[in-house]
Design a protein around this nucleic acid. Structure first.
Lengths: 138, 138
DNA sequence: GTGAGTTCGAATCTCACCGTTCCGACCAAA
DNA sequence: TTTGGTCGGAACGGTGAGATTCGAACTCAC
């Protein structure tokens, strides 16, 4: 059973059905069942339907979320805290439309992966850039 | 001693000197000395600190790297492995990430992984930084 | 030079994170 | 009715990421 091989980044294709049992999800996402239960404690938005006698019935959305979490944890090297935070930020970003400065910076900045969606103070970034410039001026 | 408060994302500005002792770096980066020594084992590119008689003398670039690592670990929630991988990916983006994932990431995050700090000629980078600064000065 | 303060490496310790294992009991479909 | 998947909870484990401690070596202002 090598469905947990971290290097194989291909997931099986999702069958066209509405609900999936935890064992199926385990195979489809390459995450063991007990880990799925554990993640459920850690990621509040990952709560499968459990009506019908305490069993989990996952929907397609949830499978995609699990795959995303898996990528963050196993491939990209986030901690669970970090992954949680990142997923929340993403939702946050969707909602916010008024931060013109940030959007502008995002549009124009060719700067690495300094994630301005975290709303990190611009001033701090500026200091860093000045430090960098002072090095480059040598 | 609150220089380790994770929520304070402001770093002190770098004094204009060439070499820094580990204690200074500790304050400038808000990372304790023993942690700096520990990171040195974990991040190979953080080893080139010139020693004179077994002492670490950090240069400005190393300080920036330490700050970057600190951000990845403490703010963004990467593991050390993840941070290491992310720093290395900057040199080998093509090998590690599939084209699909790159496109997906870019669709989600306008800033993407376009970290030019290692890949582009210094002069080019300098121009970009000046563009950035002019944006920030508005 | 002297003494106070830094820094050294290595060893040891801690503790939270991220699962793993085990469990008897429950459920569902063949 | 059997068989195999699933349940939750508690106990356990390993290792990641520092923290602490140590005596010795170094630095530098005086």
């Amino acid at each position: 059973m090598d469905y947990q091989d971290h290097k194989d980044k291909q997931f099986p294709q999702l069958p066209q059905k509405r609900y999936f049992a935890i064992g199926e999800v385990s195979i489809l996402c390459k995450v063991k069942p007990h880990v799925l239960r554990y993640w459920e404690q850690e990621f509040p938005n990952l709560s499968p339907n459990t009506r019908r006698g305490n069993r989990r019935y996952y929907q397609q959305e949830e499978i995609l979320l699990i795959r995303k979490i898996r990528e963050l944890l196993y491939d990209e090297g986030y901690t669970i805290q970090g992954a949680k935070q990142k997923l929340q930020n993403k939702q946050f970003v969707k909602d916010v439309t008024s931060q013109e400065q940030i959007q502008k910076a995002q549009a124009e900045l060719p700067l690495g992966d300094t994630d301005l969606t975290n709303a990190e103070p611009i001033a701090n970034l500026k200091n860093q850039l000045q430090d960098i410039l002072s090095i480059l001026k040598k």
